[in-house]
Amino acid sequence: MDSLYAIHKKDRLHVLDILRGFSLLGILLVNMKSFHEPALYESSFVSSTTSLDRLIEQFINLFAQASFYPLFSFLFGAGSVIFYERAKEKGHSFGRYYSKRLIGLFIIGILHATLIWHGDILINYAIIGFIFMIFLKWSAERLMKWALWILILPNVLMSLALLIAYMGEPGSLDPGKYGSQEAIQQSLEVYQTGNFIEITQQRLTDWAYVNNAENAIFLILSILPLFMLGAAAYKRGWFHQSMIKEWKRTAIITGAAAAVFKAMPYYWDESILTQHLQLSLGGPALTLCYVSLALLFLYKFKFRLEPIRAAGRGSLSNYLLQSIICTFIFYSYGLGFYGEISEWTGFILVLFIYGIQVFLSHLWFKRNAFGPVEWLLRKWIYFSHRA
């Protein structure tokens, strides 16, 4: 059997790396608010009082919220198929190597959530990745059909239940009832003045607030179908130029759906119902629209975007680096700006940090085959000096 090594630059599907690089910007846009203030416990995505800050929040809410982690999930699914096909081609056990990959991501996620930032997604990716293994060998058509059922049906049923509650008593779905001033104040105090141990305890509290048994099914239903759609897209050859007509059709359909659901809290009352529709249906719809439009532009205009592709090649390293930089800027053991900056300042920071990451990634990959964390993960998976 041939050795199963990680994919080198000449073998990579470059459009996937460009999309990963693009997703890093959107993820940082969404996460920045949680880095510099206790957004986790706020009831509304738009809470600023000044017009400029509200405009920034509305922009992020409409064009980034709930659309870039799904993009990462979509690309994770596509990448998993590549991993599977290479293992099969080389005659190796896919299950063994892929399980080691997921375990590696789980360990990195535990360290990330415990020691750096509570908003880690890698733990969920690793756990749901084991469930995803059941479906990975399915055909593209079967994956797509079941992914859409899993994504749409539960959320439609949940929306109907919320609609019934809203019609019976509109005030019962007021988001203001579900914020926690006590949790907000505690977060402000700990992250502004606490020592590393106290901040670690708060990180674990914040992580458990989202990642608990009650939310487990919702996390699975939001991440697993995007894994499946990404896998289906790759198996259909969706990242190649022959799919231009399908990209256009998908962009129109998903763009229209995103316009309806993402903007719902703005043309209807903001409530738990409209927030749910915005996040659960509007977010993924915008994800697929972004992918379709990006593919159209990349192939239509032959954009190379080498620096952004470099950032995408090191997407895991850059994702973790964003957390390290931002927690150092805002937490008390760093520069201590938690709760002290505006949304506009946060937006400028996003552009600056992302720009630095793109620049450094471009320099890094001129001399290196893998990002630093990617290199460690591949060492763990393959136990080879060549990895």
Rank of each mutant, 00 (worst) to 15 (best):
H276E: 11
I223Q: 09
I217H: 12
G283P: 03
L62P: 04
I103H: 04
E306P: 02
N212P: 02
M144E: 12
E89Q: 15
I123G: 00
A259L: 09
N368W: 05
A263N: 06
L55V: 04
I27Y: 07
D2H: 13
F196D: 07
I197W: 13
L151H: 10
T50M: 02
Y178G: 00
P284T: 05
S48C: 05
K90V: 02
I103K: 03
K137C: 02
L321N: 05
L162Q: 13
L224K: 10
N215F: 08
I121A: 06
K248N: 14
W380N: 09
Y354W: 08
S34P: 02
C289W: 06
L351V: 03
L226K: 04
L115F: 15
Y5S: 01
K300E: 10
M228T: 12
Y338G: 06
N215S: 13
V46L: 01
A231T: 02
S292C: 00
K300A: 09
T250P: 07
H14K: 12
I329R: 06
T274H: 14
F68H: 02
N368A: 11
F239K: 03
L19G: 00
V46D: 03
V210F: 15
Q202A: 11
T50Y: 01
W268A: 06
A257N: 05
S43W: 11
F68M: 01
N61T: 01
A216K: 10
S242C: 10
M32V: 04
G194F: 09
A213W: 12
G77K: 01
L360P: 00
F45K: 06
Y191S: 00
I252V: 09
S47A: 08
A310M: 04
Q202Y: 05
D269H: 12
N155G: 07
P284D: 06
S93H: 13
L4R: 04
F94E: 11
K235Y: 05
F83S: 10
G129H: 07
E89D: 10
I121V: 15
N368M: 15
F132T: 14
N212H: 06
G77V: 04
A208S: 13
V260L: 14
G21A: 00
S342E: 11
W364V: 08
T49N: 14
I107L: 15
S23I: 10
A6H: 09
W268N: 03
N318V: 05
T205K: 06
F218N: 00
F227G: 09
A39G: 14
I348K: 14
I341K: 08
G171I: 03
P175L: 12
Y84I: 10
L62W: 11
M158R: 14
S34N: 06
Q278N: 12
S315C: 03
M158F: 10
G314S: 02
L75R: 05
L111H: 08
A256C: 15
I152P: 14
L188P: 00
Q201H: 07
I325Y: 07
I150Q: 01
K235L: 13
K235R: 15
Y338I: 00
F83Q: 02
I329H: 02
A183F: 06
M158S: 15
L305P: 05
S47C: 08
Y290P: 03
I27M: 14
T345N: 02
W146H: 13
F45V: 07
L221K: 04
Y267K: 06
A208F: 09
W380H: 03
E85K: 07
L25N: 02
A140S: 12
G194E: 00
L102D: 00
E182V: 09
L71Y: 04
